[in-house]
Structure formats: structure tokens, C-alpha cells
């Protein structure tokens, strides 16, 4: 049986306590929420904290206030809320994470901070030893691109691309106080340093932009309808001005070490209606920079080709929703 290593487990009841415990325990301590990402990683010895500080007992992290979602809401709690346009895409993405059981445990914050994934990395210690380890843990080379100076592990969050697309803001609390970061600036395109969050900062909550005519959808590609991480996620946000696209953002998940916005694709849509032509143009723009690597399920060239299809389908869904009366979810 795979077991956890020995560690100290702490359960703070307030944010202040949590920060203090982290400060006391130092760099060997990590925060945990649902544990569905960290504990498997600890069992496989990817992450080896000596102290684990649970955030699940802190009431402030589990609050919901109109457009603010606490980071420790479970994904099930997020999807159980009555759907409204505001959170429909967030809810869709949350519902597509893993399995019902893991959604009962995993949290919003956990998914947004999900460790980047790679099938050279998400393996046991013994397996990784067979390839002499990799850059992300215990080794020197990124086997995905052996001459690369950086790690190419993949951002595999479903919810993060949506947050980046809709322009959500994350509120962080650390020893230096509070700061608010736009979702788009929370992530780095680096498999190791994939978050701008400092290890001693806590993601407190996420603020969704106020409704002012925007809409968003999320489409996910994976082998099975359950369990699987995205090999491609497409989040599309559109700011409508009557029937015209005033602004648009297209963000891809599962193809880089961060949720990758493709600004050219948004530009291709701006100022016109969502026509077949503009959809095709945006899909083409999104296809170009999409560079999946050989470290997830499926053949990488197929995954790249799917960018075009999935972006088109996401845009078609937004168009249908705009033009079909009564589908105003």
C-alpha cells in the first residue's frame, strides 16, 4: 500500500493562526485544503513537507458572498449553487473536475493552485528513479524537452482558465498583508514556478467580475468523462455590446505550464458579430500558439489540432446562447 510519509499536521482555526504556524514551521511547511492534490504527491514523494497546515477549519475561507467565492469551498459546493450566468462557466469547469468523490473533497483554491502535471513527474519515487528523475523533482533534465532550461509540466486546472478568461481577482493574505491579483497574473509559464503566490501566502477568495453583459463558457477535452485531467481546456469570455463582440478573451488550459491566453484570438473576434468567419479566424489564431507537449494523455499533434475544434465549438455555444431566447442561464 502506498502510504504517506511522517509529518506534523496542524489545524488552525483562523487565518492569523495559519500564517503564524507557517512562519513557525518555515519552508518545510505547506498549506493543504482538500488534500486531493497534495496527499497523492506526498505519497509519491513529489512534495515532502515536514508540516502540513490544513486550511479547512478556517471559516473565512469557506464564505460565499454574491460575487466572492471562498477558496476552501469544495468543488461540489461550488456546483451545487443555483446556476446563474455569473458563475455558470466556473460551475461548468468545477463540475468537470475529476470525479464526484474528489469534488466532494477538492476545493476551489486547490484547483486554482493545482500543481502542474507531467507523466514524467506524477509517478512514484521508484519509477522516477528509473529515468534518473526530472527537473521538477530530484533531477536535472526536463524529459519532455531535454535541452530545455525550464520544466514543461502542464497546468491542468479546469477552473483556472475560466478565472483568467473572465478576469477574476484572487485575494491573497500573507505575512506582509493582503494583496489582490488578477487571475491572469497569478500564473507563470514555468512548470516549477507556476504560481506568483508566495509559499507563505494563502489564497483567501476569488472575486468574479460584476455582470455587465459578459458571458463565458468552458469546454474540456479528455479521454474519459470522469477522473481525467484536461488535455485541453478552452475558456472563452465575451463582452457583448448588443450583437457585437465588444471584447473577448480565449484562454487555453492543458497546453502550457499556465492557463495560456491567446490575445490574437480575442482580437480576431473584437468589433464584429460572432460569424462563422470570425469564429474560424479566432480558432485558427488559438491553434497557432497552442503547443501541447508529450507529457499527458493523447498524441500531442492531435491535441494541437483539437484546439481549433474546441475553440470553434466554445464560440458556437456562446453564439447559440446569445441568439436562442430562453436559454439565458
Amino acid at each position: 500500500m502506498l502510504r504517506l510519509p511522517f509529518f506534523t499536521y496542524l489545524e488552525p482555526k483562523s487565518l492569523a493562526d495559519a500564517l503564524r504556524m507557517k512562519a513557525d514551521a518555515g519552508p518545510d511547511a505547506m498549506f493543504v485544503a482538500g488534500g486531493t492534490d497534495l496527499y497523492p504527491n506526498m505519497k509519491r514523494r513529489h512534495q515532502e513537507p515536514k508540516t502540513v497546515i490544513s486550511l479547512m477549519g478556517i471559516p473565512e475561507l469557506r464564505r460565499v458572498e454574491s460575487t466572492t467565492l471562498g477558496a476552501c469551498l469544495t468543488l461540489s459546493e461550488l456546483t451545487a449553487r443555483p446556476p446563474d450566468r455569473l458563475t455558470a462557466a466556473v460551475s461548468t469547469a468545477a463540475r468537470l473536475v475529476s470525479t464526484p468523490l474528489l469534488r466532494n473533497m477538492g476545493t476551489l483554491g486547490g484547483n486554482l493552485c493545482l500543481d502542474t502535471r507531467c507523466n514524467y513527474y506524477n509517478q512514484t519515487y521508484e519509477w522516477r528513479k528509473s529515468i534518473d528523475f526530472c527537473m521538477k523533482k530530484d533531477g536535472h533534465i526536463c524529459w519532455v524537452a531535454p535541452s530545455s532550461p525550464r520544466c514543461w509540466a502542464v497546468s491542468s486546472s479546469d477552473v483556472a482558465p475560466v478565472m483568467v478568461a473572465i478576469g477574476a481577482e484572487y485575494r491573497l493574505l500573507g505575512p506582509q498583508g493582503e494583496r489582490v491579483v488578477p487571475a491572469g497574473r497569478f500564473y507563470h509559464n514555468d512548470g516549477i514556478n507556476y504560481l506568483t503566490k508566495q509559499p507563505d501566502e494563502i489564497l483567501v477568495d476569488v472575486r468574479i467580475p460584476k455582470p455587465n453583459g459578459w458571458d463565458a463558457v468552458y469546454h474540456k477535452l479528455r479521454r474519459r468523462g470522469s477522473f481525467d485531467f484536461p488535455v485541453l481546456g478552452v475558456a472563452v469570455w465575451i463582452q457583448w455590446n448588443r450583437k457585437t463582440v465588444a471584447d473577448a478573451r480565449i484562454v487555453l488550459g492543458g497546453v502550457a505550464s499556465y492557463p495560456q491566453e491567446v490575445p490574437e484570438a480575442g482580437t480576431a473576434l473584437r468589433g464584429g458579430a460572432l460569424s462563422d468567419e470570425s469564429i474560424a479566424a479566432a480558432a485558427e489564431e488559438a491553434y497557432r500558439p497552442s503547443k501541447p507537449m508529450d507529457n499527458t494523455d493523447f498524441d500531442l499533434s492531435w491535441r494541437k489540432q483539437m484546439t481549433r475544434v474546441y475553440v470553434s465549438r466554445a464560440l458556437q455555444q456562446l453564439r447559440d446562447r446569445r441568439t436562442t431566447p430562453g436559454l439565458d442561464v
Binding site: 507523466n119 470522469s226 481525467d228
Partner: peptide
């Protein structure tokens, strides 16, 4: 090396 010796990456069909 075995590419995917896990229940997550060896794809066994789910109810869906």
C-alpha cells in the same frame, strides 16, 4: 519505462 502505471492514466472505462 512503463509510461502510465496508474489507474488514472491507464484508461479503464467509467460509467460514462
Amino acid at each position: 519505462v512503463h509510461k502510465i502505471p496508474s489507474l488514472l492514466e491507464y484508461k479503464s472505462p467509467t460509467t460514462l
